[in-house]
Design a protein around this nucleic acid. Structure first.
Lengths: 301, 301
DNA sequence: CACCAAAATGTAAGCGCTTACATTTCGAAA
DNA sequence: TTTCGAAATGTAAGCGCTTACATTTTGGTG
C-alpha cells in the first residue's frame, strides 16, 4: 500500500469493467437538464448512488423519443449497470432491448398501478384531479389548461386527464375547457396565457401543467394588467423554487423530488444486487396553497 | 452490417476503452446540480460534446474542496479524456496530478488574465465593480453585501472584491460595508437580508453575490413590509430564470451561461485532439436593469 | 515434531476490443 | 495477358484487470 501511495497507482477502470463485466455506473436519462424539475431529484439520486459506491452518468433526451432511444443505447453500450428513465411512455422495443441485455431499470416521475416495470413516482392524474377539485370548489366554472406537449409524455397527459376528470365530475362538459399545448418555457407560458384570455369567455382559473408555464402565465397576467388571483387564478405543478419566489407565490402541487430521486437509486441498487423488490409504492403529493388561487369575482361569474 | 442489425451487436465500451486507452468521455465537476446556475451551462456543454461524439460524466462536489478532489480522482480513474472544472480555487497538488496524467482541463465560470490553465469565463470582479458603480451613481452611500462563502470560491471572492473596489473608488471606506456570508439558498438570502437591515444604519442598497440570494432577500423585504426598490434596492448576479420571474424582476448581471458551456466543450475538444489554443478570452457580462434598483429615497438619505 | 486445514500467494486464461503488420485480392495501365 | 501499386482482408499481440484454480505458507493441534 505504501508503494501504491508513492506511485499513485490507480486501477484502470476500463480493464476492471472489461474483466468483471460491470462498471459501477448507473445511467439516468432525463428530458432536459436545463430545468429545475429534474435537478433536485437527480442530485438526490446521485447522492444515494454515491453512498453505494456507484457513479451516475446523465444524458438528456430533449423530450425526443428517438433521441432517448439513442441515449439509452449509448449508455448501455457504455456498460451502465442500471438505468433510470423518466416516465413510462416509450416503445416496447426499448423495454425488450433492455430486458434482453438484462439491464435493471426504474421509471420515475410517474406511477402506474400494477406496472410490471419497477417505478417510483406519484399519481400525476390524481394529483391534478385533486387540485382541480379544489379550484372548482372555489366556484370556478370556466377553466383553461396550459400543458406541456402530451405526446410521448405520460406525466403531461395524465395531468390533463386528471383535470378533465375532475371537471367532468363537477358536471361541466370536458370539451368546454380549452387546452393549449406548448413547450416548456416561461415565454411559452406567457404566450399561452395571452391566447387563453382571448377566448370568447375567458377562463377564471388557469391550470398549468408545471410551474415554469405557470410562472410565465403569471408574468403575462401582470403585464396585461390583470391581478392574480383577483382577476384570474393560476396554478402550477411541481413546486420548484420558482413557485416560491414568484409574485404572488404560486399555488401548486408539491412533488417530493428528493425523496423520489433517492428512492429510485435505492430500487436500482436492490435490483443490481439481485434483491427482490417489495412492490411499487406511490409517493404522496400535496397541494401547496400560496397566493395565486382564489374564488372567481362576481365580475367574472 | 445486416448481421450487426439482426444480432443487435454493439461494441463493448470497456474493451474499446481499454484497447484504445481513451473513453470518449469528458468529465464535469460542478459544485451542485441542485441549482440553476450550472444547469444551463452544463446542458450547452453536453450538447457541444455530443456533436463531437463525446459523452459527459457529471459529478458534484457540494462546494467541498476535499470532495472535489475525490471526484476528480474518481473521474480520472474512470478514464475521462478531459475535465471541466468550475473556478480556479484548488490546490496545486490537483493541477499537478492532472498534469502528470496529462488530462486536459478547462476551468470555467471565472476568468483569470494570463492563467496558464485554459479557462473560459468572465471577469467576476469587474462585472460586480461595474454593477456597484451603477448603484453608487444612483446616490447610494450605504451598501450591504450578501455573498456566498468566499473560502475556496474565487467567483464569490472576486465579486465581493469588485464591489469593494468600486466602493473604495467612490471615496467610501471599504470597511463600512457590511458583508454577510451565507450558503446558497433562498432562505439564507432572506435571513441575511433581515440581519443586514438590523444594522444601526441600514443599507439602502444590497448587493447579492447571486440571484438565489437576491431573490431570498427580495422575499424577505416584502415580508418585512419594505418596498423594493423604493425603500431598499437589491441586486443579483447570474441572471437565471428566477431573476425574471421574481417580483419586482431582479436587476442583475447577465452571464452568458450557454455560450460558456459550449466554449468550454470546444476548448476541451481542441485539447484532446492536440490542437493549439489561441489563448484565453473573457466572455462579456452585462448589467440587466429590471425593477429592483433605484436611487435612495430622501427619507433614507 | 509431524500433521492438516485454513489462509495466503502464485498462475494463467480470458474479457472484447485496437493496432501494427503481413498477406491476399483487385483493378487499371502497359 | 501481365504487372504492380492500392485496397481489402487476415493475423496476433497486447490493453490491465478478474477469476478460478493450483500451490505454498502458516499456525494450531495431537
Amino acid at each position: 500500500m505504501a508503494a501504491v501511495d508513492q506511485l499513485g497507482y490507480q486501477p484502470n477502470f476500463s480493464a476492471k469493467a472489461l474483466a468483471a463485466s460491470k462498471t459501477g455506473t448507473v445511467g439516468a436519462i432525463i428530458p432536459t437538464m436545463d430545468n429545475a424539475i429534474f435537478a433536485r431529484g437527480l442530485q438526490a439520486f446521485q447522492e444515494e448512488l454515491g453512498e453505494h459506491g456507484y457513479t451516475m452518468l446523465v444524458a438528456s433526451s430533449s423530450y425526443h423519443p428517438a433521441l432517448e432511444a439513442q441515449q439509452i443505447r449509448n449508455l448501455v453500450a457504455r456498460g451502465v449497470d442500471a438505468l433510470m428513465l423518466i416516465g413510462t411512455d416509450r416503445g416496447d422495443d426499448i423495454y425488450n432491448y433492455l430486458e434482453t441485455r438484462s439491464i435493471p431499470i426504474v421509471t420515475a416521475w410517474s406511477f402506474q398501478d400494477g406496472a410490471t416495470i419497477p417505478c417510483i413516482g406519484f399519481d400525476n392524474r390524481d394529483a391534478m384531479a385533486q387540485l382541480t377539485r379544489r379550484v372548482l370548489s372555489l366556484g370556478h366554472r370556466h377553466l383553461g389548461i396550459i400543458s406541456a406537449p402530451r405526446a410521448h409524455n405520460d406525466r403531461a397527459r395524465e395531468r390533463v386527464e386528471g383535470a378533465l376528470e375532475a371537471v367532468g365530475q363537477a358536471g361541466i362538459a370536458r370539451d368546454t375547457v380549452p387546452i393549449l399545448e406548448v413547450n416548456y418555457s416561461i415565454a411559452n407560458g406567457a404566450r399561452a396565457f395571452a391566447a387563453l384570455m382571448r377566448e370568447p369567455t375567458p377562463p377564471t382559473a388557469i391550470l398549468c401543467g408545471n410551474d415554469v408555464l405557470a410562472v410565465g402565465a403569471l408574468g403575462k397576467a401582470r403585464q396585461m394588467g390583470l391581478s392574480v388571483p383577483k382577476d384570474v387564478s393560476i396554478t402550477g405543478f411541481d413546486d420548484i423554487e420558482l413557485a416560491e419566489v414568484s409574485y404572488p407565490p404560486l399555488t401548486t402541487v408539491h412533488v417530493p423530488h428528493r425523496q423520489m430521486g433517492r428512492a429510485a437509486a435505492q430500487i436500482l441498487m436492490k435490483l443490481v444486487s439481485g434483491e427482490e423488490l417489495s412492490g411499487n409504492a406511490a409517493l404522496k403529493t400535496r397541494i401547496i396553497e400560496r397566493g395565486t388561487l382564489a374564488g372567481p369575482t362576481d365580475l367574472q361569474a
